[in-house]
Design a protein around this nucleic acid. Structure first.
Lengths: 358, 358
DNA sequence: GTGAAAGCGCTAACAA
DNA sequence: TTGTTAGCGCTTTCAC
């Protein structure tokens, strides 16, 4: 459409300068809360801003500022489809983000290793990065390394697994307690009024997300489904091979295991085991994160439900938040809330990598 | 963070001009595929563009162009919480969109009235709007009015309910057939191995989304749950009062109704009826769209599940697509795919209006 | 404390 | 067919 000479133009800095009777430079100082302006002048300018209903054109601002954002995602170096998905989203996004003068990259650090993570964070040069998104355990060393980043005004968001004790600017991920509750509700309803046991597979005691899911799961199972007994967790460390090895013992414990809640990663081990020991009936299985594997298991009827969070949304949200924080702009929290996705066979999004949207 | 003199700057039009040995104006002509450039020159410029890996800075381009986007959402004038939610999202977004030189507004037209909708669309001045998002029925008159818009290069997206026979640029909404299938799968599993009937409440035969949901629902019920019989639809026209009036007859038909699939709007009527005729046990109810009412019904155990689509995502996606189409830029389809959200009591997002994210 | 002027990457007259 | 130039809205020296 044509520029539209008919549409009312938004007020600009020039208008403010004119109305407030000051120069452009002064308007800019007030706008960016820079020092060196007399109080009365500040007020004059602010009045003009309010009167005109001025909204700053960030695009123009960034252009003039020649600003480039550099964001880093730190992810666990697990052999894990979900983490791979996140990395892929980062890489996919990096292309289009260049238009927005934003550079993103990934760094993998050993999983479940707080020291390695803290070291990696400490090795970062705060002058070379504007924001860091961290998917890792919550420990004192990690917390301290985050403090250092924040002290240098680097924006930090925790990803997937929160680090609330730190000074991170935001958490980007689902409410894991609610996710655990959701799994429990689904498990109980799918199972119906039978009596038996439910096995919970977790990843690591260090991982806050795993802990929270377990918490929520237990809460709802105890409250709503007294007919079902939740067994102690099997700690699989997100390792398919370990899980495949541990599973026989857990399942052969003489208990009547009707359901399995796989609350962490390493589902390949679970799938392999079930596939090889498939009886006439298999337990109700609820797992986490929609990945090629879980998608297949869901489609094939091996998994009954998958609780997930959208990797694309996760990454875009983290970037938006880090950027907003970098030029301390407001954040639309509604847009940034990551939903707890529930997938069953029927609402699986079409196609391979397209587990995304948001 | 500081501008980062260390980070490699992206190539600009000036670089292209220098490398291709032409002027800025010529580069611009090639970039925008404007006529009046010799073929060999075009090639020279394109070579430079490719060699340098140039990516255009759309922000700067729009700034220079003084471009303003005007988008219109046309919504049914039903007394409908979901539509209200969409309108609210549009209004909420309009604020922040001003920064992006984008104006959005809403227009309500009589619901289930193809002529009124077509008239409204035809009344639009193509010179005064860059894109239109339409939530309405698919009829020949509507189709024709869309054709006219498209002929004037106005971008058109269908919202919530697709209009595939038209020349709309895109459909923004969930796959309604899959949504119906999801509802059926949940219904069947929640009900378990019992025998009885399921009532389907629909809105209008004119509404493609309602039709598609019914289709998907029937398909899965027939395939997976032969123990359950799906009754003919009750057509509630999204009208709570009408629904409340029709419900008694439907439920007193002598059949054993174990489940209700409310595939359209007007849930207030359903809730009122059930509330007043609450027996020791009530049917499994699955409804659509997370709204204040359905949220409450879910929390209170009156509804068992809600299939939804995120109104915020819907609106943002529509805007992004209309904008992309306006400056024929590419669309990240992955981001624009609207997910079929499944809500149960446990994964209800916190708080009132915050049904959003994505 | 404040202002004048140059410039960010791109587009759009207007010349040539 | 091509080039020159001014300017979008904002920031940033550098002077006063």
């Amino acid at each position: 459409m044509k520029p539209g000479r008919d549409t009312p133009l938004n007020p600009t800095v020039n208008d403010i300068a004119r109305v407030a009777q000051v120069s452009l430079a002064t308007v800019d100082r007030v706008l960016n809360e820079r020092p060196g302006v007399r109080k009365t002048t500040v007020e004059k300018v602010n009045r003009a801003i309010a009167d005109l209903g001025y909204v700053r054109d960030t695009a123009a601002a960034n252009l003039a500022r020649r600003r480039i954002y550099r964001f880093l995602f730190i992810l666990p170096a697990t052999n894990n489809e979900f983490v791979d998905l996140i990395e892929q989203q980062v890489n996919d996004l990096s292309q289009g983000l260049k238009r927005d003068r934003t550079q993103v990259s990934c760094l993998r650090v050993p999983a479940f290793d707080p020291m390695a993570l803290a070291d990696a964070i400490n090795a970062l040069n705060p002058a070379q990065v504007d924001g860091v998104a961290i998917f890792g355990p919550e420990t004192p060393s990690v917390r301290d390394s985050i403090s250092r980043l924040r002290a240098h005004d680097v924006s930090v968001v925790s990803l997937v697994s929160d680090i609330p004790s730190s000074e991170r600017n935001a958490y980007v991920g689902i409410d894991n307690i609610a996710a655990g509750r959701t799994a429990a509700q689904l498990m109980g309803r799918f199972l119906g009024p039978v009596t038996g046991d439910v096995l919970v597979m977790t990843g690591s005691m260090l991982a806050r997300d795993h802990l929270e899911r377990r918490l929520g799961f237990d809460e709802v199972m105890a409250r709503d489904f007294p007919n079902l007994t939740v067994l102690a967790s099997l700690e699989g460390r997100d390792d398919p091979d370990l899980i495949e090895r541990l599973l026989p013992q857990a399942l052969a414990s003489g208990r009547d295991i009707l359901g399995i809640y796989s609350s962490a990663a390493g589902n390949a081990g679970l799938v392999r085991y079930i596939d090889h020991h498939r009886g006439p009936t298999h337990p109700i299985i609820i797992a986490h994160e929609l990945t090629p594997l879980s998608r297949m298991a869901l489609g094939g009827g091996l998994f009954d439900a998958v609780i997930s969070q959208d990797s694309g949304h996760l990454v875009r949200s983290a970037v938006r938040i880090m950027r907003a924080h970098s030029d301390n702009a407001p954040i639309n929290m509604a847009q940034e809330r990551i939903r707890i996705d529930v997938y069953i066979k029927e609402n699986l999004p079409p196609d391979p990598g397209s587990t995304t949207g948001g």
